[in-house]
Design a protein around this nucleic acid. Sequence first.
DNA 1: GGTAGAGTGAGAGTCATTCTCATTTAGGAG
DNA 2: CTCCTAAATGAGAATGACTCTCACTCTACC
Lengths: 152, 152
Amino acid sequence: MERAAAALDGEVRLLLATREQRYTGQRREIVHALAGLGRPATIAELLAATRDLPQSTAYRNLAVLADADVVRRVSGPDGFARFELSEALSGDHHHHVVCESCGLVIDAATSPRLEAALAETARLIAEANGFEVTEHRLELVGRCRRCRAAAC
Amino acid sequence: MERAAAALDGEVRLLLATREQRYTGQRREIVHALAGLGRPATIAELLAATRDLPQSTAYRNLAVLADADVVRRVSGPDGFARFELSEALSGDHHHHVVCESCGLVIDAATSPRLEAALAETARLIAEANGFEVTEHRLELVGRCRRCRAAAC
DNA sequence: GGTAGAGTGAGAGTCATTCTCATTTAGGAG
DNA sequence: CTCCTAAATGAGAATGACTCTCACTCTACC
Ligand SMILES: [Mn+2]
Ligand SMILES: [Mn+2]
Ligand SMILES: [Zn+2]
Ligand SMILES: [Zn+2]
């Protein structure tokens, strides 16, 4: 993990440098908390996972990190914003599964077949509507294992 | 349109009746405004498209209509909630294309190939994570024709 | 017509998020 | 190392979409 953490820091520093932003201790804490969690985290989760991170600083730094394409903002089923390391950084395109009962959001692997169908859909949309489709977001909605077990 | 409008009202009345809710004039105005627009509308758009609809009544009635499965709440790229007639009512499963420049959201037809790929993905998720997937939401993100034309 | 309960609407309240600004910090110049 | 300047910080105020309150109105049913 030492090596991976150092490589992550190097990439983040580079992305921030292109926007003339510094890679401060708090920003590193946020990035490493997100890397450790491995799923989209709310502000509350980030505050719990770090030491001495004021709420206003968390919001401001997440905006900076999102602008530098270090993190991505994901909207969950509840009203809370969630954040994860960007696909540019992790190099792994994926989708999300959300539990409509407890709000949990986890990553879901994609597949060549699904991506091919999505690409074809995007092409048809472009033809029919003049819309240029640059990315897609897919959420699979349901109930997580825990909520199913606890169900009445 | 006369026939279709009457049929729509009948279905809405039935859906509301199962929740012991009335189909009032304001609720009819909202439903018909949504039917006329044919794409997810914001509260502001609904207020502009109707006469004498106070904001608080719009929010309350949209909540009632959503609870009765007459309308569906869709989250747009900006922070604003959007509403459309439910798929149960229109009988047409579809996805959305959103313009990240101006916030426009329009409907996008699906295809058997895409739905099959989505169903397979849902099955794999269930196997791997114990997640019971009941529905999916797909947003194709890009730039609309108007924003592309106006681009710098 | 009378009445009980649903619906209405103006305004107050909520709360995640953003903004403000005085203070602290850090990186480069000398 | 010591300034100097601009970025970063953080406590609190402000914002704004949305929800709640409650006195009033309407409506379905008798
Ligand atoms: Mn993710
Ligand atoms: Mn739609
Ligand atoms: Zn759950
Ligand atoms: Zn646009």
